[in-house]
Design a protein around this nucleic acid. Sequence first.
DNA 1: TCCAACTGCTTGCATATTGCAACTGGTTGA
DNA 2: TCAACCAGTTGCAATATGCAAGCAGTTGGA
Lengths: 167, 167
Amino acid sequence: MTEGHRSGCPINLSLEVLGDRWSLIVIRDIIFGNRRHFRDLMAHSQEGIASNILAARLKTLLAAGIITRADDPTHKQKGIYSLTEQGIELLPVLAQLSSWGYKYLPVSEELGIRAKLLADGGPKLWAEFMDELREMHLGVKRKHKGPSVFAKLRAAYEAVLAKQKKK
Amino acid sequence: MTEGHRSGCPINLSLEVLGDRWSLIVIRDIIFGNRRHFRDLMAHSQEGIASNILAARLKTLLAAGIITRADDPTHKQKGIYSLTEQGIELLPVLAQLSSWGYKYLPVSEELGIRAKLLADGGPKLWAEFMDELREMHLGVKRKHKGPSVFAKLRAAYEAVLAKQKKK
DNA sequence: TCCAACTGCTTGCATATTGCAACTGGTTGA
DNA sequence: TCAACCAGTTGCAATATGCAAGCAGTTGGA
């Protein structure tokens, strides 16, 4: 699998793993949507990822050590995908990318609210969120108190949806 | 609305522009290597980008408003590529991606030093660098005093190279 | 016990993108 | 005059992506 790299530059190496149209989308859905099963990731995807592409991406993310796969005790065929520490630390990358997109691209209101909150919260909020992700994916109890960032983001998203429905 | 887009999510929209193996490599070389001409970008690339792919990427980056192209007064055929403000603000994205790669991927020493300095410097250093990039690409005089971040990064890279040569 | 719905994928095939090498038409400086 | 330099383009093969259908199981309800 690990064949020759194009160069030893960290940006290049990162792109060799994540530089395509889908990898970061999958990680986004795991992080922000807490989608942990194959069909969860496939069916609820805003962008409509195809099953063969999802399977291929999960395989490479697994091989890269960004996610892990465990059997689900409630269903013999179900697998649970979890982030590793390495995967959790992609949050700042996603946050910056999301910030940039929010500022310069035609983002929809309901999907942009998350970007806004993340950008406004800055690195401190990201750290809290990563702490929560460690609890959700690695089973490490989170240290910070107060309301969950994950829940706050989701609530904000749903509030926008509700507001739009009213109109 | 979001015609032609997979979704209005800022991460997705960003990936639709930048989500491939080469776009961010080109931007990296413009930012950190100050490569402003076609052949500069092609010949000195660590990864060996092909001319047709470089041409295609420059076209899409141009269309996306991330770079601009101007004629070079010293040579009728030369074009000078410059970053827009939108392009300059990709620096934090590159910095995070670079940080992550530095931590988790088999980065070479000489190419990793830049990642380390950027990560250690944090958002404050990035802001200074972006200020310099505005001077280099937009003609806006930089506000901060002191030594150039661009020069510091380059010097550090060359110091590592010199050290390796000695061995 | 039977069966529909659900599980994580795989397969086949058409289309789109990438990568390589050669080539183009023009410019510049000695 | 001419070799070197300039920004690309072209043709073609290899690879990746996207879509629809299918597969071998598992589960839960009647």
